Amino acid sequence: MGDKTAEVKRALTGKVALVTGGARGIGLEICRQLAVLGAQVIVAARDETKSEAAAKELRKQGYQAMALRLDVTLKRDREAADAYLSGRHGVLDILINNAGVWLDSANAATPPDRPPSQALEKDIRGTFEANFFAPLLLTQRLLPLLRRAPAGRIVNVSSIRGSLAHLSDPASPVYPIKALAYDTSKAALNAFTILLAEELRGGPIKINAIHPGWVRTAMGSEHAELSLEDGARTAIRYATLGEEGPTGGFFYLEERLPW
């Protein structure tokens, strides 16, 4: 093994990373890639059985992984996650707010069931609970632990569908599908990213929103363009930023996206 390869594989040795929605899809692949880099990964998911199975499989492959039941929409689960991390690690280096839902239709390849003027309140509220309030409240809860890290990193898994510039541009690929609940929840998550980054600017914590791309998951559908491995790349990139890396931005790989 060359020195450069070894250096990459050791990049996150000793770091603690929590990934919400980590038991399947993009979240599981993010867990795997962080573990490959040496991180102690907390596979957090609302289905404890799936979380345990995912963590066990990672450990079988020689990585450091633990399971954590975490329904991000439940206050008691967020408090329990804080207690677990405080008691076991005393610090959190990386938080990936990946868990989210799409309730506008069957999946992101299917047109919304209703136009924005007829979107159901239950779908809008349910989407905001998972896609906006949950990552907001979890980040607030875990921020003291992130402050204890020498270089805390927060990655909010957003979407190009949260870009007001893209939603209002007829030339944008996302323009034709107007998914009110999902689109506005991700726009709100983007706004939170900006505001928290400005509050924390000048300190060691960096927070960015990312668009993973259109990925082949249950949400993205089998029609999506990207594999799970490719879909996790942007999250990994911004979870492992160096001191000179950006904060308060919105990115897909190296590309800065418009708000």
Rank of each mutant, 00 (worst) to 15 (best):
G27A: 11
R233I: 06
L137N: 11
T73K: 09
L70T: 05
H89Q: 10
T184G: 04
E198P: 01
Q140A: 15
F192D: 01
E7R: 05
A239W: 00
V19G: 03
L195P: 03
F128A: 10
K122R: 11
L180A: 15
S168R: 11
A224N: 09
Y238D: 02
A232Q: 02
A151Y: 03
M66I: 12
P212I: 01
G249T: 15
I154V: 13
A81K: 01
P246M: 12
N97G: 10
P212A: 07
P135H: 06
L226T: 03
R78I: 08
N156L: 02
P135F: 05
S172A: 14
G90C: 10
G100P: 07
F128E: 09
L241G: 07
G245Q: 12
P135R: 06
T234A: 07
L142A: 07
A171G: 12
C31F: 02
S105K: 10
L142Q: 04
S163N: 13
A188L: 06
S105F: 13
T73P: 06
L164V: 15
L137E: 11
A209W: 00
A218H: 08
Q118L: 11
T13Q: 12
Q33I: 01
G231L: 09
L164W: 10
G231D: 12
D230F: 01
G245H: 11
T193E: 02
P115F: 09
L167W: 05
A35L: 05
I205R: 01
N131A: 04
I42M: 08
I236P: 00
V41T: 05
D113M: 12
S172L: 08
L85A: 04
A45H: 05
A179Y: 05
G2D: 10
G100W: 06
N208L: 07
I94L: 12
A55C: 11
D169Q: 09
E229G: 13
L195S: 14
V72N: 01
R46M: 15
D104S: 12
N107G: 15
L195W: 08
E198L: 12
A224W: 05
P176Y: 08
R147E: 15
V72P: 00
L146Q: 01
A134S: 14
P258L: 13
R216G: 07
L37H: 01
R233K: 14
V16S: 03
V19E: 03
A108H: 04
N98T: 11
Q33A: 04
R201Q: 13
N107K: 04
L180W: 03
F132N: 00
